[in-house]
Design a binder for these strands. Sequence first.
DNA 1: CTTTCTGTACCGACCAGACGGTTTGTTTGA
DNA 2: TCAAACAAACCGTCTGGTCGGTACAGAAAG
Lengths: 191, 191
Amino acid sequence: MTNRSNVTKQKLLDAATEIIMNHGVHHLTLDEVAKTAGVSKGGLLYHYASKEALLTAMVERLQQEQNELYASLQQEGYGPVEAFVRLFDETKLHPERAAIQIDVEKMIAFLTLFAVDQEYANRWKEDLDAFFEQFQKTADPVETMIIRYALEGMMMSEHFGVGVPPAELKQAIIARLIERAHDIDNQSEKQ
Amino acid sequence: MTNRSNVTKQKLLDAATEIIMNHGVHHLTLDEVAKTAGVSKGGLLYHYASKEALLTAMVERLQQEQNELYASLQQEGYGPVEAFVRLFDETKLHPERAAIQIDVEKMIAFLTLFAVDQEYANRWKEDLDAFFEQFQKTADPVETMIIRYALEGMMMSEHFGVGVPPAELKQAIIARLIERAHDIDNQSEKQ
DNA sequence: CTTTCTGTACCGACCAGACGGTTTGTTTGA
DNA sequence: TCAAACAAACCGTCTGGTCGGTACAGAAAG
């Protein structure tokens, strides 16, 4: 694959991501993606032969980004559970650390894509199933899963803007989740 | 409104609900709803002048069902938080109590609708915002919100079938959530 | 050196099907 | 008989995808 082709492909994925984030799934049309990327529809379909191919590539790219961020958090010394919690909040807790960038908004946007078409959700399933399996083998699987679920629920709530608590309460919630995750990781290590 | 009309309207809402649950949002078309309900499209549009009117009615019906169930749980003596937890699991914990029926699958299906079109989500927003406000005034708002988020996250996870824990672990999670909710309600009452 | 050829990257008109909604006609029950 | 309760053909729009063509960079041929 040439360099030029790659640049265009990234532009197309960026465009698709931008649209799904800022305008919603139902505006995610081929024409719109092409227009946003500054390419014609023909150009788009040259690189991605179908809408599904485009969206699949988009999902795969995000998946890879997530994995890399998680790995880098673990390399910084965080245990598996705490690293997971921080995955959701690193950017907002430490905006200065732009290098580590998880985009919760982006993840949420993708969730809506999965909601519409289970096919795309299934692309994550294998990876995520394997990932969450380790969560069932920590020192306290019940608490670990509660932490995990809470983060996912929080994400949804924020997305819909429904029942969103004031900032201080939200910080307190995250702080407590991190605290507990930390404890669990410590306990797990001692075993 | 005549009786006959009412029956057909319920059939239409049932059909729409069935489709969104079993086939996903993108199959939720007027033709499909009409066909499932055993009515022509003309017949459908006689009762609900637009797709939006149909879906709004569908959302409102669910909303009402939820409120009734929650109220009945509270009348049985459960505190606000515990009643909320049981809202998510009453059917599965006590399948014999068919009278009290919340359909988690159904709620989840509706979430996908909200994901696609924020408009429908906004119809709940006011109600839910008011509802969750009381959760910020319990004896332990942080824990209360964690419980709430965990339940919502659990719902999502089940829907996508991603990272679903074995049945025993799931029961243990719910048991612990109920336990904590119970404690919080007790503490709140003493204040 | 120039002409021809070839493959990559891209354009944009067009098409077919799906879908929401309209209109017109028909049945049915009080 | 009259209005409510449907049925069914039809329409316009939107959207994913096709298709014939263009621009251009290099390789091959003369």
